[in-house]
Design a protein around this nucleic acid. Structure first.
Lengths: 202, 202
DNA sequence: GTCTATATTTAGATAGAC
DNA sequence: GTCTATCTAAATATAGAC
């Protein structure tokens, strides 16, 4: 009796214990960090027993590693590629807006970044997976776009790409993650304008 | 019998229990994070008993809060003010170099930033203290320097200051904190050159 | 003021029933 | 395969001796 596998490929299928566990793990680890998360809570949030968690994952570290790898591999993307035919003023503003809006569209993204940074001492490989799967493709995409526009007269497109993305990430870090909005207020568009002015005045 | 108070002002004086506890707390919290640190280890590392820790600080949260406040208030500084008479190419390179070298000079600084980010969800006030005491003065100092040099023709000095510092912090975040050196290699001076080229080509 | 010893809770992990 | 019940270790916090 061949069951319909297509249905089970839906990663949110309720019957899939692995998914339930990872969902519970995501909620708990993202909220409380590695050491602050208990396997009891993971099991309860996932709607399974703790023994079931341990039958699917070797231990807490294994579960955490599996979760982070999965989130870095599947769930989050900095931004998609921009066609090189788009003119720079439009393309760069689009990229910047996309990155800064990411927090709204994917509410867990900033929390995920926080988690990876928080555990980058204890789990350096996981931080490296984040860099490899998210940071690197983002930098490379933007570098390639910048390099394909010689009229910008950028002496070092890759350095420029890092400056561009770094400014945006730091902005989110300071304003949202570290709750600096009221202490160090600045409109999102003001930062973007400043960035574009620096890059476009060739 | 008046004892010599001057000696006790040395914050590493062995007899001062408060200092011993904070030293132990610093080492443990910086290494293992909030939830990953036990009061037993803090006491042992500080060379006192656990009961003594609880006689000086109300509980784990109080100790953690006191430690972070202290580190943000006293121990770390982004960079000192640069005289406005220094010419931009020199001054900006000096500021950039200072910030990037900070990790070497103050080996705990990156770890402290990691800790504050890690706990910025549970302890938002502590993240705000960090922003108020470290981020804000840094941005403001650089903004003032940039604003005092109209020959740079910067339409928005504060946005530029954020771009400048953001690029540098993101660089350290990616290369060092998240162990991305080998995955996304770039020389420190290449980023600085790229930054200066963007800002100085007026 | 400072310590040792301990009460109490909670955590990671597993044995054994079904 | 999944659950309940439990073992063992470790953590927060405090009582009581000195």
């Amino acid at each position: 009796m061949a069951t319909n596998k297509a249905i089970e490929l839906d990663s949110t299928a309720a019957g899939d214990k692995t998914e339930q566990i990872l969902q519970g793990a995501m909620q708990e680890f993202l909220t409380h960090g590695y050491a602050g998360t208990s396997m009891d809570k993971v099991a309860k949030t996932g709607g399974v027993s703790k023994a079931t968690v341990y039958s699917y994952f070797q231990d807490k570290e294994g579960l955490f590693t599996a979760l982070v790898q999965r989130l870095a591999a599947e769930k989050f993307v900095y931004f998609e590629a921009v066609p090189e035919s788009t003119e720079p003023a439009i393309a760069l503003r689009f990229v910047a807006t996309t990155i800064l809006d990411h927090a709204s569209q994917e509410p867990h993204f900033l929390t995920f970044l926080r988690l990876v940074i928080a555990e980058s001492g204890r789990f350096p490989q996981l931080a490296q997976i984040f860099v490899r799967n998210l940071t690197k493709p983002g930098i490379e995409r933007l570098t390639q776009y910048l390099a394909s526009h010689p009229e910008l007269k950028l002496p070092d497109p890759e350095a420029t790409a890092r400056i561009f993305i770094g400014s945006l990430v730091y902005f989110q870090l300071t304003q949202d993650m570290m709750h600096g909005k009221e202490i160090l207020p600045m409109e999102r568009d003001r930062l973007i304008d400043g960035l574009l002015q620096l890059i476009l005045r060739s």
